[in-house]
Simulated scan of single mutants.
Amino acid sequence: MAPDVVLDPASSADAAAIRTVLAHAYRTNPLMVWALPDTATREDACAAWLGPSVDRYLAVGRVLVARHHERVVGVAAWRLPAAGPAPDSLPTPSGVLAALLGRARAEEILAALSSAASLAPAQPADYLNYLAVEPELQGRSIGTRLVEAGIADSDSAALGTYLGTTDPRNLPFYRRLGYVDAGATTLAPGGPVLTVLHRGQDPAGSANHMTVSP
């Protein structure tokens, strides 16, 4: 447990700190290793790629941060089905990825991720897109507290939740929180396997209008 860690809603002032936590926590994530193979630049590239999504979730999603002595050390970012349109601003996640890797490689990665769309719930549900905790503080129940707080918000709105992960080490963690495997897809030959999990939804359902994103 981490009694010296407090959770509260994020604001736009937290954007840079959130990008940094994501970059540190996702350094060895199989999706990032596959998409961003250069270890020397992976953290910077990850922060750049995910940064626009962070900005959009801060504007129209639900973002909760964990603070340790006022420093942001963890984050959970949710896409909400009833959220309004994202701000029309640059850069975009796809645009950043194309700038980093070239348009052809970026389109290949995004197409692979979109192949999991059929595994999304049939009914509207809150999507946990990002969960990250600074590596030195992992294993102290911070991630559990972040997810449980988000689940409570979803439960209060009578909505299920879902997520996708390419890290098999995460599967027992999410299953302990009540998530059930809905299916999996291999993103590319020799690439990572993306597993989609649902909570409070029929795992057999699908909704092609919903997308699973990194």
Rank of each mutant, 00 (worst) to 15 (best):
G95L: 10
L31E: 05
R145H: 11
E136C: 08
L159A: 06
L101M: 13
A120Y: 02
L36H: 10
H69W: 07
A207G: 15
A125R: 02
Y179P: 00
S206E: 08
E107G: 11
H24Q: 13
P124I: 12
P3W: 09
P81T: 11
A106Q: 06
L177I: 05
S118E: 12
A106Y: 06
T185G: 01
N170M: 10
A59I: 06
A204N: 12
L197K: 01
P214G: 12
V75S: 07
L119V: 10
V133F: 02
G139P: 00
D181C: 09
E43Q: 15
E148I: 03
G95R: 04
F173T: 02
L90N: 11
V96H: 04
Q138N: 06
A112S: 14
V6M: 00
A45D: 15
W34Q: 01
V73I: 10
A122W: 03
A125C: 07
L22N: 04
E136V: 11
V5Y: 05
R175N: 07
T41N: 04
L58H: 03
D155G: 02
P91H: 10
S118H: 15
F173C: 03
A15T: 07
R67F: 10
L113G: 07
V75D: 07
D38N: 14
I151W: 00
A13S: 15
L90Q: 14
Y130H: 11
L171I: 14
D153V: 08
P189M: 08
S89W: 05
A76E: 05
L194K: 01
A25V: 06
L194H: 02
Q123G: 06
L7K: 00
A40H: 12
A23S: 13
T92K: 11
Y130M: 13
V72D: 11
A152F: 00
R19I: 03
E107M: 10
M210T: 13
V96G: 04
A82D: 15
D4H: 09
V75N: 04
V75T: 04
V133A: 08
A48C: 08
T165S: 15
R67A: 10
D126R: 09
P9N: 10
P93F: 12
S53R: 03
R103C: 09
A17D: 15
Y127R: 01
Y179S: 04
D44S: 14
T185H: 05
T185F: 02
T185V: 15
G61Y: 01
V60S: 08
A182P: 01
A152C: 06
S206H: 14
W34E: 02
A23Q: 04
L159T: 03
T165E: 06
I151P: 01
L36V: 10
V96F: 05
G200L: 04
A104G: 13
R105H: 13
L58W: 03
G51T: 11
L7F: 10
A15V: 08
E108L: 12
E134R: 12
S154M: 07
L90A: 15
A125N: 03
L22I: 15
N129F: 08
S11A: 13
L171A: 08
A184E: 13
A40P: 00
T41F: 08
R56V: 15
D55C: 07
G150Y: 00
